[in-house]
Computed example of a mutant assay.
Amino acid sequence: MARVSVKLDKDNYLVQLGAAVRARRVALALSQEALADYAEIDRSHMGKIERGERNVTFLNIVKIANAFQCKPSDLFIDAGL
Rank of each mutant, 00 (worst) to 15 (best):
I49N: 02
C70A: 07
I61T: 15
K48T: 14
E33I: 02
Y13C: 07
K48P: 11
A36H: 03
D37F: 04
D42S: 02
A19H: 00
E50F: 00
S31Y: 10
V56G: 05
I77V: 14
M1D: 15
R24F: 00
D9H: 05
E40N: 11
V15E: 13
V4N: 13
K48V: 08
R54W: 00
R51T: 07
M1T: 15
C70T: 15
F68Q: 08
A2R: 06
N60E: 02
R3V: 15
P72M: 00
A29V: 13
G52K: 03
F68L: 09
M46A: 01
M46K: 06
A39M: 07
P72W: 00
D74N: 06
R54L: 11
L30S: 06
I61R: 01
A34K: 06
L8G: 08
G52N: 05
A36K: 02
L14A: 06
A65I: 12
Y38C: 12
E53T: 00
C70F: 02
N66T: 13
L81W: 05
F58T: 09
G47V: 06
E53Y: 03
A39S: 09
N12I: 02
L14D: 14
M46L: 04
A39E: 05
K63M: 04
S31L: 04
K71M: 11
G47H: 04
A23H: 03
V21G: 05
A36T: 05
Y13R: 15
H45E: 01
V26C: 06
D37W: 02
M46F: 10
